[in-house]
Design a protein around this nucleic acid. Structure first.
Lengths: 187, 187
DNA sequence: ATCTTTTTTTGACAAAGGTTAGAAAAGGAA
DNA sequence: TTCCTTTTCTAACCTTTGTCAAAAAAAGAT
């Protein structure tokens, strides 16, 4: 997916502002398994996925929890670094070789102060992510693991083929063994 | 809590912008039990809590899930109405008689287009809410019900005294019976 | 205070999901 | 292909949490 299309789907910018933003972006590729962003660092870049998929996971005790998947067109960032210039809570791993657009967070923050359209673009980005996250939190409470799996299949039909089940189980908040049982029951 | 303080804690605005925003706000009071925002409506106001507490809940099948509590200084809105001008997924109920500041969403949207500082104020609001929501989603996956209860006690020590346990159980994602058992065990 | 209603707790049992460990299947490398 | 590694599935058993029902406690109303 091209950068213009990615920016447009968040919020339609006037041509001049869009060009300013596009000119700050550089392309970069990384192999499968690359850790794009690290939990214990204040990260200074954000990315847009041109091609490929990624996941965000958080580590505590010995457990690792995957709580986000990103695909073509999605924005990748360390939320706490971006919002509060603090160390994040997530690592982000590329699950396939990825083509990415890179943008310096500092540069973007400066544009927020200078260009009202870009500020509103940033506002819309956060707002949309917020609705998605809030809906997931609610879904977690309403639905059984089986229903949540069906929902994921419906929302991201492609993902299942490309991501290993351990990560999907973690995303759904269940053990891999449970997911395996759910899949066996459905057939 | 006064309106100026509430606006400041989201993002520090220059005096002129703050005054513009403050002048759009009117005060209004409602009794305990009042439904401030309704799930099946496109709501046109947002509120700030001057005094009192509220909860957001979503209804599906026969289940009701409380997924948010608001207290003095918090912002109350129908997320989907605010972000996408669509019907929301939540009712918001006042758990005590509340003093509120009311702001027309339409008016705010217009200010976002006119004043870059207010646009950035709106951006910061969404970003902060996003981090809080994402952290809750992760916590849900990492922690046992007992740990999440302890966490809530720690984060909102006042709330427990003022909100009935059925709502708290729902917020934690467990049944009221389970919460009751957890409380019995802790002592 | 007394009665009524609502909220919280407790007990018994059922269901969902977790853990461990090993088997089967799939994927890579030589 | 064959061997080795990783991923997925299955089975047995255990823990947590849910449901239903009833008792106890707390809050409101008269």
């Amino acid at each position: 997916m091209e950068i213009e299309q990615i920016l447009d789907q968040i919020y339609l910018l006037p041509e001049t502002s869009k060009l300013i933003l596009q000119n700050c972006v550089t392309e970069i590729n990384y192999p499968k398994g690359h850790i794009l962003l690290k939990a214990d660092k204040i990260e200074s870049n954000i990315y847009f996925i041109r091609k490929g998929i990624a996941r965000a996971y958080s580590n505590r005790d010995d457990n690792e929890v995957t709580f986000w998947f990103g695909k073509e067109g999605d924005t990748v960032l360390s939320m706490k670094s971006y919002v509060a210039h603090q160390k994040g809570y997530e690592d982000i791993e590329l699950l396939e070789a990825c083509e990415l657009y890179e943008l310096k967070s500092e540069k973007l923050q400066k544009l927020f102060e200078e260009d009202i359209h870009i500020a509103n673009w940033g506002r819309k980005f956060a707002e949309k992510e917020l609705v998605i996250t809030e809906e997931r939190l609610i879904s977690r409470q309403f639905r059984t693991a089986t229903e949540r799996y069906a929902e994921l299949l419906n929302d991201y039909p492609h993902l299942i083929q490309r991501v290993q089940l351990g990560h999907i189980a973690s995303y759904l908040g269940i053990s891999q063994v449970s997911l395996s049982r759910i899949r066996a029951d459905i057939k």
